[in-house]
Design a protein around this nucleic acid. Structure first.
Length: 553
RNA sequence: GGCCCCAUGGUCAAGUGGUUAAGACAUCGCCCUUUCACGGCGGUAACCCGGGUUCGAGUCCCGGUGGGGUCACCA
């Protein structure tokens, strides 16, 4: 029996040939330089900041080059499947402004390079497995789990690289030994389970400095020299479903992906993919191995974000805290491209589309996620969003994540005024960061959440009642800011406080305190806290009735 | 352990053989100021180590060290 006959024996009824698929999925007609990228999540439905970070690279690369960005579902591991995962993936990415041109959608596939769900592509993978079989570059392997374990143990004791490769699976050499051929054939006939392995042409167990190497240009890392693969990795599992390696190569070729963006954890398996591309006679796409987002682990060292250990880094965490998607996007972009922040400072209002994102400007070392920085970036982003939009966004956030704030949205015009305090001054306030923080920041406007949290300053505590009753008595809601503050000064002076803080600092013995202490008493009575934006402005928004009510309680 | 990747202040990072080694965040001080925020000024703080190449090395080469990743019929 020869290779072709074996291939036909194993895959007797293939619908199409490799040439047919080449014809079905021709090279894309796209403008010069257009990039085709893809996101290939497994359907666990869990997406964290690190995934989003990578997704932005794909999205930017495709969309700023006039290319195509598609979604492919990599569900070759049935154990990972989670109900509604695809929908979750699409909606969470959409929330952060990541939109696909092609691939899986909630209402079916879009595009002519599908099917875009790997579990639906079994026939295609079989065809290419048959192709490798017929070229003598693959073989059926009947090794059981126990046998493989025994092989590994032997290899470990002999200090050899563990794995199945030349010399360790007898089925690899079926064509050299009639006895093995016969055994293989009878197992095949008996329907015994097997996997299809690549028959790697690499040389096993050579010293690193003597190994054959492939030179690859990675778009973010530059020149890479990787040793050739020699492992007979599984390409089709017992179930007939491909492993990631095989599916990646077949799909990205057939879907005409030009740029493969993936985390650096894939770097060690790059040699496998190179061998597979070469065996099938295909061009290798441009690889972009991105550095991973890291966080500080319990031991004080950096480590890769993990979905199991870091639930607080899930996208839902940021949504439930109420970080605006634009803020998260802006932050991710600043760590994605080193010159983005500078560009943004020079072009505060420009659309991200105007920024030229490049893989060369990406860092090849993993960045530590920095919440302080996110918060800072968010302040700036919020400042550029009109109050009416923030109000509407807060409302929908509250409906989904924090219904207890319902009272704040009964009067949207009022809410807008509150949010806009000090935002149009020459030096605008930047104190809106994320929804939960904002709700706390403005809580004193609403009786439902108003509470006295600070104590009167020691300098004026004794006179608090006097200050408050005198203030209430002289209060005129129609006073402008200047008139209003002149009255406070007057009141302070009458009670023995310095009208200017400087006077008090110079001669602390001459006064009980200064006007700041007096106004703090009023601020606490009105707002419940010693710190807030301008009192007069707040009073104007609160309205006379509420001001008088709070002062007289 | 083998292999692979990475290495500039606490964090993100400019820097491509000659710089007083940028900038941002954080932090500290001062100023502005009725508080806070904003803004302004200033401070503390870095090229992992050792060899080599060179007139000259953060930058190039080699070797360590450290950190990360990976060694599945998971992706």
């Amino acid at each position: 029996m020869n290779n072709l006959e074996l291939s036909k024996l194993i895959f007797p009824n293939l619908e199409k040939s490799p040439a047919d698929y080449e014809e079905m999925y021709p090279a894309r007609e796209l403008p010069e330089g257009a990039k085709v990228t893809r996101l290939g999540p497994s359907p666990t439905g869990f997406i964290h900041l690190g995934n989003l970070y990578g997704a932005f690279v794909d999205e930017r690369l495709a969309h700023q080059s006039g290319g195509t960005f598609f979604l492919r579902i990599e569900d070759t591991d049935d154990k990972r499947f989670v109900e509604n995962a695809v929908e979750t993936i699409i909606t969470s990415l959409d929330f952060f402004g990541i939109k696909f041109d092609e691939g899986v959608t909630e209402t079916g596939d879009i595009g002519s390079y599908g099917d875009y769900t790997q579990s639906h592509r079994a026939e295609i993978y079989r065809t290419y497995a048959a192709e490798l079989l017929s070229k003598g570059l693959a073989y059926p392997c009947f090794l059981s789990e126990d046998e493989i374990t025994a092989v590994r143990e032997k290899q470990e004791s002999e200090k050899l690289t563990p794995g199945i490769y030349a010399g360790w699976s007898k089925y690899r050499d079926w064509d050299k030994d009639p006895a093995i051929e016969e055994e293989m054939l009878s197992k095949l006939k008996a329907g015994e389970p097997y996997v299809i392995r690549l028959k790697s042409q690499g040389t096993p167990n050579v010293r690193a400095d003597e190994a054959v190497r492939h030179l690859v240009t990675d778009a973010v890392r530059g020149e890479l020299s990787v040793p050739e693969n020699f492992q007979d990795i599984v390409i089709l599992k017992q179930t007939g479903i491909p492993t990631y390696h095989f599916a990646h190569v077949v799909d990205d070729h057939l879907m005409r992906t030009t740029h493969v963006v993936r985390g650096e954890e894939w770097l060690p398996s790059l040699p496998i993919h190179i061998e597979l591309f070469n065996d099938l006679g295909w061009d290798i796409p441009v690889y972009c191995h991105t550095a991973q987002l890291m966080k500080i682990g319990e031991d004080g060292n950096k480590r890769k974000l993990s979905k199991r250990k870091d639930p607080e880094l899930s996208l839902d965490y940021y949504r439930s805290q109420g970080y605006h998607p634009a803020a998260v996007r802006e932050y991710l972009l600043t760590i994605l491209n080193s010159n983005y922040e500078e560009w943004r400072a020079a072009n505060p209002e420009a659309s991200v589309d105007e920024f030229e994102f490049t893989t060369e400007k990406m860092s090849s070392s993993g960045a530590l996620f920095d919440l302080d920085k996110l918060n800072d970036v968010s302040k700036g982003v919020m400042l550029n969003i009109p109050a009416c939009e923030i109000a509407a966004w807060l409302k929908s956030w509250s409906e989904e994540f924090a219904p207890e704030y319902e009272y704040a949205f009964r009067d949207m015009a009022l809410l807008e005024q509150i949010l806009d305090i000090g935002r149009h001054d020459a030096r605008p306030r930047a104190d809106l960061v994320y929804a939960r923080q904002i709700m706390d920041f403005i809580s004193y406007f609403f009786d439902e959440s108003f509470e006295i949290v600070d104590e009167y300053p020691a300098e004026a505590a004794e006179d608090a009642d006097k200050i408050l009753s005198a203030y209430l008595e002289s209060y005129d809601h129609s006073d402008d800011n200047e008139q209003w503050f002149a009255k406070i000064r007057e009141l302070a002076t009458e009670l023995g406080y310095a009208a200017k803080p400087k006077d008090y600092k110079k001669n602390p013995d001459d006064f009980k305190g200064h006007v700041g202490h007096v106004s703090t008493v009023i601020r606490i009575k009105l707002m419940g806290r010693a710190q807030s934006p301008d009192v007069w402005t707040i009073q104007q928004i609160m309205g006379e009735a509420k001001v008088r009510e709070r002062l007289s309680k």
